[in-house]
Design a binder for these strands. Structure first.
Lengths: 243, 243
DNA sequence: GGGGAGAGATGCCGC
DNA sequence: GCGGCATTTCTCCCC
């Protein structure tokens, strides 16, 4: 048992990344409060003192401490306890380890940043560079325009030279997207003292209620699909594997 | 190398939870597209065929496949490759492992569900049971009322018997919260054919812009803090550890 | 399964 | 730091 404590402390001192497979219970106090009774989990301690607890199923971690936690391992009643705290965020997480199955620690070095494409921003850029996606004669003016009431994806003039605001959504546009568009249109109207401003929602899909609300406000929807990595960088079509 | 393939296949067949510390690169194609060049990471394969890739720092995974992925490990050019796919979601992730540092596999069993308190729902319940938090004479009628245009946290009549809608936010209320409240108020007005409906935003804090917008619409803000676990179950104040 | 909304959201960017 | 907002959001709940 003391052997494990030593290995954990060594790992922490060396800024290694530690993985413990164990049976444990977890309590958390902070922005909310949680309790997780006994079960088998993975506990991961990263080199920046992030602590993550994963159950054996599911995508998301069940408990975690954000980077910069203070970690204090000790033994009490023959159980290994990991007490963690983040004084800035006022977060506290305690892990009581009843059984320890495996422990690995590695010095991991990673200077790479992930590159992501096919985002909403890419979609706005696509519309900006291809204004005919909105309508023939659409003249884009700005991208990601910052206002106090939120930032506007695409700003421009329509074929009749009416000021238009375009809000992009990568997937299904919902009620919130219509709310957002409406807020921008109203703010631009009042701040610029203009009577008519067009609101346009661009997305590949829109929910029934959202479309109804959109129509109630006199806004319109255009069917646009966000660009893929392939379209942007000419990557070859992925070949499907056969099982 | 073939030894590792065998251990991975065994782990998959036994529905164990597998952790690999390695140097790898990752590509993802699906709802978005991403590329992550070489670096040291943890690759986790869970018993439900969730696959998660973690860099040595940061809270969130850098890449992942949701539960139910098909996983195909093989060797190409002396590199270990993990090809994963989710045909339903049309997600594809490939991990090319250049160096493998550690590999552990454990049969993990966990039937526990996490219990969380201090949520927005707890806050709505608190207001429902303590209507004087809104104002003397407030009469709550329903909680979490479902409508086609969203669900209303607390519904009731104010001291003057005017219909009132309360939207709760656990922390800082923002522009979106005002949008939401406005949407509910307008929908209730039109569906019930009522002239006057009060909109009340309950939160411990509210942003300046949100407050301004709230006032513009004639809505009001009340200062309410969500209940903590302690208040609900009488748990003792956590003692701070000393380092 | 679709729709709507909270989340210990997280993370990013801009002011 | 706050504010506004997208996210491979995730997760839950209800219809």
């Amino acid at each position: 048992m003391q052997e494990y404590i030593s290995r954990i402390e060594e790992s922490l001192n060396r800024n290694e990344t530690l993985v413990i497979a164990c049976n444990c219970e977890v309590t958390f106090d902070g922005r909310a409060n949680s309790f997780l009774s006994q079960g088998d989990r993975l506990v991961i301690i990263k080199s920046d003192n992030t602590v993550i607890v994963h159950q054996p199923t599911g995508n998301a971690p069940v408990n975690y401490m954000k980077p910069g936690a203070k970690i204090h391992p000790y033994i009490e009643d023959k159980k290994l306890i990991l007490e963690t705290q983040n004084l800035v965020l006022k977060d506290y997480m305690d892990i009581v380890i009843h059984k320890l199955y495996s422990l690995i620690s590695n010095k991991l070095e990673d200077a790479s940043d992930i590159i992501i494409t096919g985002t909403e921003k890419d979609m706005a850029e696509m519309i900006y560079k291809n204004p005919e996606l909105v309508e023939k004669g659409f003249k884009p003016v700005s991208l990601e325009e910052q206002t106090k009431y939120g930032f506007i994806d695409v700003f421009g003039y329509d074929k009749d030279n009416v000021l238009a605001i375009i809000e992009c959504k990568k997937f299904t546009a919902d009620l919130k997207a219509v709310d957002q568009l409406r807020r921008y249109v109203e703010k631009i109207k009042s701040s610029k003292g203009i009577e008519t401003v067009r609101g346009i929602l661009a997305s590949p899909k829109i929910s029934g209620n959202a479309l109804k609300m959109l129509n109630d406000f006199g806004f319109s929807h255009i069917h646009v699909t966000p660009p893929s990595f392939r379209e942007k960088f000419g990557k070859k079509q992925k070949s499907l594997m056969e099982f």
